[in-house]
């Protein structure tokens, strides 16, 4: 029986080819149908992670607070008079949101490599793995955001009306994080050397995105560089969040453009890029 006869024979008896990648739309429908699984897996994985430490969930809040405090002391001291206005709320907003981005990037990159057992024993759209890591990071972000709002309210003696923008900023942030996780997951599966560069990439993002200093002040004399720096999605998204929370900063409507272009562009590209290699996941 040659190839054509085989295909005809298979078709006549209702057989379909195994391991074939479904069309993108059907693939996404399959992911949507299993959303209960993705959400449960994200929650359970977080719980399991927290269960092994005494303070458990409290670490989610304690760690970013320690980080922000140390950064506040060090950079506050180094920068001295060059500190951005309203420094502590400015810095905390930056550090807390950056934590989400860097951890989505890091855990997204190991979504496939650290779940080899699951991949080789159950069949499901593999996109659910990076998706679940981003949901995990989002679930971790919620208490951190709550704390941030409380801290900012105490320090500023109240909140701004612009806080109404915050949920929208968070949606953009999560979509952007998903795009990063999808791209990183495939890249790291195929070339594990890239995984070694991720901590480094995170540091570069940290130092170039104005987490603890003001890019506007720094580049005030150089409009070209400033325009380029404002296309940095991490900077754009964080500056929107600052506009929503920190007194003395405004929600610059222009900042929505780089934020949305990056978030939507990267997540759409990331989805297609991840799906394109679906048949190849599961190899050591």
């Amino acid at each position: 029986m040659n190839k054509q006869e085989l295909v005809a024979y298979a078709e006549a008896h209702g057989l379909s080819r195994m391991g074939a990648r479904p069309p993108l739309w059907n693939y996404l429908v399959e992911v949507w149908q299993r959303r209960e699984f993705v959400i449960a897996m994200s929650k359970f994985a977080n719980e399991a992670q927290n269960a092994r430490t005494r303070l458990g969930k409290w670490w989610l809040i304690l760690l970013p607070v320690f980080q922000a405090t140390v950064y506040g002391l060090i950079f506050g001291f180094i920068l001295d008079s060059a500190r951005p206005d309203n420094f502590i709320p400015y810095l905390f907003t930056g550090v807390f949101l950056f934590t989400f981005i860097s951890s989505s990037f890091t855990t997204g990159s190991t979504a496939l490599t650290s779940n080899a057992g699951l991949i080789r024993s159950l069949s499901f759209p593999r996109m659910m793995l990076p998706l679940s890591t981003v949901i995990r990071q989002f679930l971790n972000l919620v208490p951190v955001l709550g704390l941030l709002i409380v801290l900012v309210a105490i320090m500023q003696g109240g909140l701004k009306l612009e806080i109404l923008y915050l949920p929208l900023v968070i949606v953009v942030l999560v979509i952007f994080g998903l795009g990063m996780a999808l791209v990183a997951a495939r890249l790291n599966m195929q070339l594990q050397d890239l995984g070694k560069l991720i901590p480094f990439a995170n540091r570069v993002i940290f130092y170039t995105s104005g987490i603890f200093f003001s890019i506007e002040n720094l580049l005030a004399g150089n409009p070209t560089l400033l325009a380029i720096a404002q296309w940095n999605p991490v900077y754009a998204i964080i500056s929107l969040a600052r506009g929503a929370l920190v007194v003395g900063y405004e929600v610059d409507p222009w900042m929505w453009v780089p934020s949305l272009v990056w978030a939507l562009g990267l997540s759409i590209l990331g989805t297609v890029y991840f799906w394109a290699a679906e048949e190849r996941y599961g190899r050591d």
Binding site: A10, L15, S121
Partner: peptide, 17 residues
């Protein structure tokens, strides 16, 4: 594993209902 579609095959075909 190949029949279950969990690892890719390098040549040939697997069909199933």
């Amino acid at each position: 594993r190949a029949i279950a579609g969990l690892i890719p095959i390098d040549q040939g075909d697997i069909y199933a209902t």
